[in-house]
C-alpha cells in the first residue's frame, strides 16, 4: 500500500474584482494533481515558480484549503482537518521550509525548538526529552553546545539542519521538504542533502521533495513529477524523466539546466535553442484551448505523460494490444 495517495487535488484561489468585489475567477494554483508516494521513497515535485508545486505540498500538510480532490494517508481519508485529527497525521507528516530562519522562533533556544514537536506529541520526562534532542542534533551533525544557542547564532546551513532535526523529531513517516536547499551555497547544500539521505536510510522516512533545481532532484529522488500551470505534465522514475523525457515542457526544462561540461556548451546551447523554438511552435498542441494539459497516459510502466490526444492514441493502442 502506498503511504500517501493524492487524487485529483485542486486548490483554487479566488480572484476578486468587478464593482462589488465579487469572485470573478479562480487562480487554478493546483488543478487536478494525482500521485502516490511509497514508504521510504523520495518523490520529487518539480516546476518553475507559479507551477503549483509548493501549494500542493502545503495542501497536503493542511496549510492550504483543498478545493476538491482526495488525500489518503495509509488508507485513511485525510482531506479535511477533521479527518486528520482522527489519526496521528499531524505527527506522521512534517515539513521543512526553504527559509529556515523565519520558520524558527528567534526567541527560543535550539533545545526548545527541537523539543517542541516532542512536547506536542510524546509524553517524555525532561531527561528523556533532552536525550532525544541530543540524539536528533547528532543525526544532523550539530554539536551538543548548540543546545542553548538561538537561531540567529547559526549559519544558513546549520539552521536548515535544525529545521530537519525538528521535522524528524516525532519519527514522521512523511517529510515534505519545500525547496530545502535553494537558499544555500553549493558546499552547504551538499551537506544538508547528505543528512537528509542518511536520515532516510536510518529511519525509513519518505520525502516529498519540492524543488526547482533539477540537478538536486536527480540526486535525491526515486520518482519525479513535473508540474506546469498547476498540473502534472509528466511523472516517472528518475531514469524516465532524465533519459526519456516525453513531454515538451519536460524537455524544455531539462535543456535549460546549465551544465558544467564546458566542451559541450555550444552543442548544449544549440539544442536548448532548438527545443525552445519547438516549444514556441508546438506548445499549443500540448495544452487544450483553456491552457490545460491533457490527461496522463502511460507510455511505459510507471511513466505517465500528458500527451496531446493524437500521440496519446498510439500508446493506448499498444496497451490494448497487450
Amino acid at each position: 500500500m502506498s503511504l500517501i495517495k493524492v487524487k485529483n487535488l485542486k486548490v483554487h484561489f479566488p480572484i476578486r474584482g468587478g464593482f462589488f468585489n465579487g469572485v470573478v475567477d479562480n487562480v487554478r494554483a493546483v488543478d487536478g494533481v494525482s500521485f502516490e508516494i511509497q514508504p521510504g521513497e523520495t518523490f520529487g515535485l518539480v516546476g518553475e515558480s507559479g507551477s503549483g508545486k509548493s501549494t500542493t505540498g502545503r495542501a497536503i500538510i493542511g496549510l492550504e484549503k483543498v478545493t476538491s480532490g482526495e488525500i489518503t494517508f495509509e488508507g485513511h481519508d485525510v482531506t479535511s482537518h477533521k479527518d486528520r485529527k482522527e489519526i496521528d497525521y499531524d505527527q506522521d507528516v512534517q515539513m521543512i521550509f526553504q527559509d529556515s530562519f523565519s520558520s524558527l522562533n528567534p526567541r527560543k533556544r535550539i533545545e526548545s525548538i527541537i523539543a517542541e514537536p516532542l512536547k506536542n506529541f510524546e509524553n517524555l520526562t525532561p531527561e528523556q526529552e533532552k536525550i532525544k534532542v541530543l540524539q536528533l542534533m547528532k543525526i544532523v551533525g550539530l554539536s551538543p553546545d548548540a543546545l542553548y544557542k538561538y537561531p540567529h547564532q547559526f549559519s544558513g546551513g546549520q539552521r536548515q539542519r535544525i529545521g530537519i532535526a525538528r521535522a524528524v523529531a516525532t519519527n514522521p513517516k512523511l517529510v515534505i521538504a519545500d525547496e530545502p536547499v535553494s537558499a544555500l551555497d553549493l558546499s552547504v547544500q551538499a551537506q544538508v542533502l547528505n543528512f537528509m539521505k542518511k536520515i532516510q536510510r536510518n529511519m525509513g522516512v519518505s520525502y516529498l521533495f519540492i524543488s526547482h533545481d533539477l540537478g538536486v532532484v536527480r540526486h535525491m529522488c526515486d520518482r519525479i513529477a513535473i508540474m506546469n500551470r498547476g498540473q502534472i505534465v509528466e511523472i516517472g522514475s528518475r531514469e524516465d524523466i532524465y533519459k526519456h523525457p516525453k513531454h515538451l515542457y519536460t524537455q524544455r526544462l531539462l535543456a535549460a539546466i546549465p551544465s558544467t561540461r564546458v566542451a559541450d556548451r555550444d552543442k548544449d546551447r544549440e539544442r536548448r535553442q532548438k527545443i525552445e523554438k519547438e516549444y514556441k511552435e508546438k506548445q499549443k498542441d500540448y495544452y487544450d484551448k483553456e491552457g490545460r494539459a491533457y490527461p496522463l497516459v502511460e507510455v511505459s510502466k510507471g511513466h505517465l505523460v500528458a500527451l496531446p490526444p493524437k500521440e496519446a492514441l498510439k500508446y493506448k493502442d499498444i496497451k490494448e494490444e497487450n
Binding site: 542533502l193 539521505k197 540537478g215
Partner: peptide, 20 residues
C-alpha cells in the same frame, strides 16, 4: 576542486555528495 566535486553529478551513483 572541492566546489566542483560537491555538485550533484549526473552519472555518479554515489549516494553521498562531497562536503567541504
Amino acid at each position: 576542486r572541492s566546489l566542483l566535486k560537491s555538485i550533484p553529478q549526473v552519472d555518479s551513483e554515489s549516494d553521498e555528495l562531497y562536503v567541504i
